[in-house]
Nucleic acid binder design. Structure first.
Ligand SMILES: [Mn+2]
Ligand SMILES: [Mn+2]
Ligand SMILES: [Zn+2]
Ligand SMILES: [Zn+2]
Lengths: 137, 137
DNA sequence: GAGGATTTGCAAACGATTTGCAACGGCCAA
DNA sequence: TTGGCCGTTGCAAATCGTTTGCAAATCCTC
């Protein structure tokens, strides 16, 4: 099926983790949508009502640890998840202050910037990733 | 006393809000430290044990609404607060993936960037603020 | 200092997330 | 293909940070 899912399945196997129905379905949901989803939303979209909400949480934890998904915290109480950079590409988000709508920005405003220079004194710091959200209207 | 606190007090008054002991002490804590604090930490540092944790939450809400403090969500369960841009200047944070230590970066890697250009299609979006955190070691 | 409006302390409610545990189901070896 | 082991799940209860209702305390204006 979808090549990303195959890649991820292989990755799970390599990490010694089982390929189970909850995990597969959570991934199916995440690959099917274009924007970050709350856990509750992911759970609701699973084809299978037998799957428990806590299994979704556990799957997302595992995926996050294996860098399969990215977790976003946008200020309302709930975390949002989307496929990680390796599967959806590096991008950032516009968050509307008024209605809360979220949109992707594929061009990274940091590209070409020498982050090391910006750090200055804290040169001992090796940047591994960054999180950038733009808020507005 | 500290000029920032006077400014903020004036601002509260202008907004029709009272200058009360909990609010003053929360501000005193925030102006005294250089890094973002969790609500629980702020509460612990108040000189006065009579002040209730929920008053700290309420004070921080008010301050956040009036743009006196900034709220940071760094991925562990708890929000962190620090004085807002107008009082501490625009800056970002380094977050250590290993130990969780947080450090300020005063140079903004976005300065001089035309965010509008980076947005591309979503030109209808007016960026009012941005949040950038750098993760690494 | 008195009056009325705001704010506080307290304790209970809340929503998101995590956890213990017994039943279950992938996965590998036979 | 089957058997069985060990990781995984469903379920319900616990936890955590945060919010809220309400009566009492505090602030601000006069
Ligand atoms: Mn996205
Ligand atoms: Mn800071
Ligand atoms: Zn970027
Ligand atoms: Zn900046």
């Amino acid at each position: 099926m979808i090549p990303e899912i195959d890649r991820i399945r292989t990755l799970l196997t390599a990490a010694g983790c089982a390929w189970t129905r909850p995990r597969a379905q959570v991934l199916a949901v995440l690959t099917a949508v274009a924007h970050p989803l709350r856990v509750e939303e992911i759970h609701r979209r699973l084809g299978d009502p037998r799957i428990n909400l806590s299994s979704v949480y556990r799957a997302l934890h595992l995926f996050h640890r294996l860098n399969v998904v990215r977790r976003l915290l946008l200020g309302d109480g709930a975390a949002r998840y989307e496929l990680a950079e390796a599967y959806r590409g590096h991008h950032h988000h516009l968050v509307c202050d008024a209605c809360g709508r979220i949109e992707d920005v594929s061009r990274c405003p940091l590209e070409g910037r020498d982050l090391g220079a910006a750090l200055g004194a804290a040169a001992a710091f090796a940047v591994r990733s960054h999180s950038l959200e733009l808020f507005g209207l």
